[in-house]
Amino acid sequence: MNKIVKFYHEMGSPPSFYRITGYWLKPFFVLALALTVYGLIDGLFFAPPDYQQGDSYRIMFVHVPAAWMSLFIYAIIGVCGLIAFVWRMKVAEAVMMASAPIGALFTALTLLTGMLWGKPMWGTYWDWDARMTSELILLFLYIGVMGIYSAYDDDPRKAARLAALVAIIGLINLPIIRYSVEWWTSIHQGASISLMGGNSGIKDWSMLRPLLVMALATKFYYLYSMLHRARNYLLRTEQNKSWVMRQLTEQ
């Protein structure tokens, strides 16, 4: 138990966070790369074609993990925002701001792959269905968090606190958006073709396996990329502290 408490405290202080996460970067990167390569090969070549969608469903192995990550990362940003705002924890600020661009990227990737998938499935690149619409609004939430931060670039501490506030508001708003958008599509249109149309097919282990592998790969990629960014964020915002000096002269 003591070890966990000690670890928790260490992760809260920028110098030890920087030191500890330094050891994690390489393993995470290797894992992310290996899992991506395995997942893509497995998904693109070995998984059986879908009985309805043929081969075009294979974009799912990118689309679905990216969609999961886009929501997962926003949840992390919201929670970190809450911690940063209430306890003024610098590491939480770093994780929050490091996560935002990655989350925005996954959201954009989700939208892009969704559009590419939509063309053969719906016959159009864009359809205002519930998932696509709330994903688009999610992108606006990400842009808001990053936008308020960069608007106050002369004072990073204030920028991070305001961004944290925006993230918290977004976190409260997210379920409302999802619910309202679902309500909206259920009334205005008939149920749109679900992208997971072959839902029965997904129970096939040979289809599920690459999906889960890719989901893991994106998690590790996120961890690697986020920690890298968070460490740089800490170096930049703490540049006058002695630990940064020591860190930089050692290297």
């Binding site: 609004i137 842009i143 808001g144 936008g147 608007a151 925006v166 508001i169 309202s180 309500w183």
Partner: peptide, 18 residues
């Protein structure tokens, strides 16, 4: 800040509009 304000509150207003 006008443009940023629009970006910040558009997601908040979307449910109201719906």
């Amino acid at each position: 800040g006008g443009m940023l304000l629009s970006v910040l509150i558009m997601p908040l207003l979307a449910p109201v509009l719906i």
